[in-house]
Write a protein that binds this DNA or RNA. Sequence first.
DNA 1: GGAATAGTGTCTTTCAGACACTATCTG
DNA 2: CAGATAGTGTCTGAAAGACACTATTCC
Lengths: 229, 229
Amino acid sequence: MPASSSLARHPRPNVAVDVAVLTIDPAERRLCVLVQRRDDPAGQALPGRFLRERQTVSDAVEKALELKVGIPVPAGREPHLLRIFDHPRRDDRGWTISAAHSLSLPFAAVSGAAGRLVPIAPDGRLPEGEHLQFDHDDIVAAAVAHLRQRYDVRELFTAAPDPDRFVAEPFTLSDLRHAHEAVLGERLQKDNFNRRVTDRLVALRDGDEPARRREGRGRPATLYRHAPG
Amino acid sequence: MPASSSLARHPRPNVAVDVAVLTIDPAERRLCVLVQRRDDPAGQALPGRFLRERQTVSDAVEKALELKVGIPVPAGREPHLLRIFDHPRRDDRGWTISAAHSLSLPFAAVSGAAGRLVPIAPDGRLPEGEHLQFDHDDIVAAAVAHLRQRYDVRELFTAAPDPDRFVAEPFTLSDLRHAHEAVLGERLQKDNFNRRVTDRLVALRDGDEPARRREGRGRPATLYRHAPG
DNA sequence: GGAATAGTGTCTTTCAGACACTATCTG
DNA sequence: CAGATAGTGTCTGAAAGACACTATTCC
């Protein structure tokens, strides 16, 4: 903020926020983005909203999600700022800049939303035939790129696995791996993945034995939580 | 940008940009940030400016640097968006949000600036006794953290060395290493550093021999450019 | 020769990646 | 038992980090 000048009478831009809500569909094991349900066949759009008086950006994101897709933002979830779209003529209704954000949510928080979950192609973009209005395709691509960086292999040792907490505790190593595979859009090898992440996890105990989850056929899997710190 | 609503008559915020200009003082081999020269003893500040009508953010950054510290931005240099400061009462003159940016410049582009170069402490913050107005201390810390990530060891193999081009071509391996040391605030081992970066560089030729720079005592050093691509 | 800077040979440790194996459950 | 899922033992190759060495200049 410029320190010296008094607040001059400049025209001020409309300031908007747009949000790419990312989640993982556990049935399909696919990364999805939440798109507003609108009848307009010309183009779907991400939820977005103009800033109201003295509103913070993250508050505007929260309001946009409540009003446009009908979901509350769980406590402790923070939107990530991706970039600012500021082309002077990008909106012919007037000078408008938009702060593009991404927000990762667990599937349970999104499944009741008033919107469609569009799967992300392995290349990190929207599938053929799914195109969004304005610059929203680019926001999705930026959101996925940003997310994949946080789930990069090399991050597994410096940071925690599943930094965006797509997977609810407690979880099995397979749950965790499937989440990483959905984010990265590629298969990971079970053995190497397990060895990399177990240092950062604590196994739940059931008395003397490790706590396990039995589900369908096969050997029951040990349950884990994220290690504190 | 919200697609459905017409442009309502909301109050609009003042939108500002603030810039942490980072450079490396080659004599001191230290990372520095450019601070506006102001007489106000209460606090120094980073260059910043309000957006003018239909102005883009990066254009506002450019203008701020020209007018507040008197330096032109060389072609091909892009400011990095760090975060948005948006506390509703952060400026008592009115509702103002600020897009904080960093911009890396070679020393030659900054040495004539109307401002002070303040060295960055090894912990990435401003030294004791140097404090800036508003949230500008935080901008500097964020700018340095962002920069150090780009200069992380692990990035050397995936990306080019000196991605922000602090060092002008042609350069010696020592020039390049000193720049990385200044950014990271720690010493690097000559041998390992050289081996990591030489793949990404091309040695200049002087006829049959590699081109060398003789300077003071010691064996002359081979000159390099960045490898294309 | 001595001091200073440039550059290399090679060893150890770490760890990502891959293959093959063992373990425990359901039907 | 077969089929399915969970989990481990161990090798290979890449590369980061460290030590010791050689090379070429100025004085």
